[in-house]
Amino acid sequence: MQDISLHLLDIIENSVRANARNIKVRVIRNVQKNRLRIIVDDDGVGMDSHTIEMAQNPFYTSKADREKKVGLGIPLFKQNAELSNGCFKMASEPGFGTVLTVDFELDHIDRMPLGNLKDTLLGAIIGHPEVDFYINLSTKDKGVEQSFHFDTAAIKEELGGIPLTYPDVIEYIDQSLFEGIQNTNMEDV
C-alpha cells in the first residue's frame, strides 16, 4: 500500500464484509498534537477478543475458502502506523460492531501520505449503495477547526430510487468530496 487512504479503503471493505450497514469514517488532522488520526466505526458483526488478536497476525484470515492462510490488510496498516511513531487500536464486541483507531505522527519522516481520499471515498460510497456512510474530516490548526460532514443516507433519501451510479450523482458526490477535502486542507497531507 502506498498511502493511508488505500489502507482506509481496505478497512472499509472489511467492514462491508462484516455486514455493516452504517460506516463512520473520520479523518482528523491535529497540527498542535502533531497527529493524523483515522477512525473507522462500523455496525458489522464484530469480533471477540481472540479474533481481534488474530486479525493482527499476517498468517490469519477470516476467509474460510482461502487456500493459503494469509491476511495482510490489518497487519500492514498496523505496521505502517507504528513505523511513523503512531499506534493502531481495534475495539470490538460480537454483535456490536468494530471501532478501529489508527494514529500517525503527522510530521514523521516515515509517515505515508494520506493519498487520494476523494477517490477512495467516492468508490466506497458508490460501490456499496447498501451501506450508509458518515464521513467527517477535520483539521485543527492554531486553535481553528475546519470540518466537513458528508452523510450518504440524506443523499439517498433525496434521490428516491435514482441509483448512485447515475452520471450526475457521481459528479455530485465527487464534487462534494472535492470541496470538503479542500475546505479542510486534506488534499496534500
Binding site: 471493505e13 462491508v16 467516492l122 468508490g123 466506497a124 458508490i126 460501490g127 456499496h128 449503495p129 441509483p163 451510479t165 447515475y166 452520471p167 450526475d168 457521481i170 459528479e171 465527487d174
Partner: peptide, 17 residues
Amino acid sequence: FLEEIANRNLTDVLVTQ
C-alpha cells in the same frame, strides 16, 4: 469506470465493489 460513466452519460450501468 465512474469517470467514464459520468463523461459518457451512461444511465443504465451499475458499478459496485
